[in-house]
Simulated scan of single mutants.
Amino acid sequence: MPKMVLLAEYLSLNGVDLSEYTRKGELAVEVEEKDVTNYASAGWKELLGGLKSGELGIEFLQDVAATKIDSIMWPLLGTVVPFEVRLSNAVVGTSNPKYTGSVLIKEWKPIEGSVGDEASVGVSYPTSGAVVRATA
């Protein structure tokens, strides 16, 4: 059975490689379920897929120094930007597909945490438009 350990996930927002700040990245896509059950369904529920949507969840290690993650993300607040994620920062291919699309930067948390915690930022961005999987 194949196994994989995430050691070098790749994350880019707005064309900027943010992998060095990224501790966790999750891309989830889903489709609405639409109930089309009728009397001819013989007592079984019937479903069709509706609208698709996605969400990009990220945990960054915070850095507020000039040109670092806080200064990169702050100006993007409220904008729709392109993203790319891969399981590895290696070359895109059949064993390392890339997922691309656009996300709405709907939040940023300049300060988050408790006494003694590392400075990290957890955010979640909804996709806007299609999410595409590619191997080239």
Results as ranks from 00 to 15, higher is better:
Ser41Arg: 10
Phe83Ile: 02
Val80Ala: 13
Val85Lys: 07
Tyr39Gln: 12
Met73Ser: 05
Thr67Trp: 10
Asp117Gln: 11
Leu48Met: 12
Phe83His: 05
Leu48Lys: 15
Val85Tyr: 10
Leu51Cys: 01
Leu56Phe: 06
Ala66Asp: 12
Thr79Arg: 13
Thr67Gln: 14
Lys52Ala: 14
Glu107Asp: 12
Gly43Glu: 08
Asp70Arg: 11
Glu55Gly: 09
Arg86Gly: 02
Pro97Met: 11
Leu56Gln: 05
Trp44Ser: 12
Asn38Val: 01
Glu84Phe: 04
Phe60Thr: 02
Ile58Glu: 02
Ser114Trp: 08
Arg86Thr: 07
Thr37Cys: 04
Pro110Leu: 04
Gly78His: 09
Ala66Arg: 12
Trp44Val: 09
Ala90Gln: 14
Pro75Val: 11
Arg86Lys: 15
Tyr39Cys: 01
Val36Ser: 06
Gly50Phe: 03
Leu77Trp: 06
Ser41Tyr: 08
Ala42Gly: 02
Thr67Val: 11
Ser41Phe: 09
Phe60Leu: 06
Leu87Thr: 11
Ser95Ala: 15
Leu77Val: 15
Thr100Ile: 10
Gly43Met: 08
Leu87Ser: 11
Ser88Phe: 10
Asp70Pro: 00
Ile111Ala: 13
Leu56Asp: 03
Glu107His: 05
Ile58His: 04
Val85Pro: 03
Glu107Phe: 05
Lys98Ser: 13
Ser53Asp: 08
Glu107Gly: 08
Thr37Pro: 12
Phe60Ala: 02
Thr79Tyr: 01
Glu59Phe: 01
Lys52Pro: 00
Ile58Trp: 08
Trp74Cys: 06
Val115Ile: 14
Leu61Asn: 03
Arg86Met: 14
Gly54Arg: 08
Thr100Gln: 09
Ser88Arg: 14
Lys45Asn: 06
Thr100Arg: 08
Ala90Cys: 03
Ala40Tyr: 09
Ile58Gly: 00
Ile111Arg: 09
Glu84Gly: 00
Leu76Arg: 13
Ile111Thr: 14
Lys52Cys: 01
Val81Ser: 07
Pro110Ser: 07
Thr100Ala: 07
Ile105Gln: 02
Glu55Thr: 15
Thr37Gly: 06
Glu46Asn: 09
Asp117Phe: 02
Phe60Lys: 05
Asn38Ile: 02
Ser95Gln: 14
Glu55Phe: 00
Ile105Asn: 04
Ala40Gly: 03
Glu112Ala: 13
Arg86Asp: 01
Lys68Tyr: 03
Pro82Ile: 05
Asn38Pro: 00
Tyr39Trp: 09
Arg86Ser: 03
Gly57Cys: 00
Trp44Cys: 03
Gly113Leu: 09
Thr67Gly: 06
Val64Asn: 12
Ser53Gln: 06
Lys98Gly: 05
Val103Ser: 10
Ala65Asn: 15
Ala65Ile: 00
Thr67Pro: 02
Thr79Val: 01
Val92Arg: 15
Thr67Ser: 15
Ser88His: 10
Trp108Asp: 06
Gly54Trp: 04
Val85Asp: 06
Pro82Cys: 05
Tyr99Ser: 07
Phe83Arg: 05
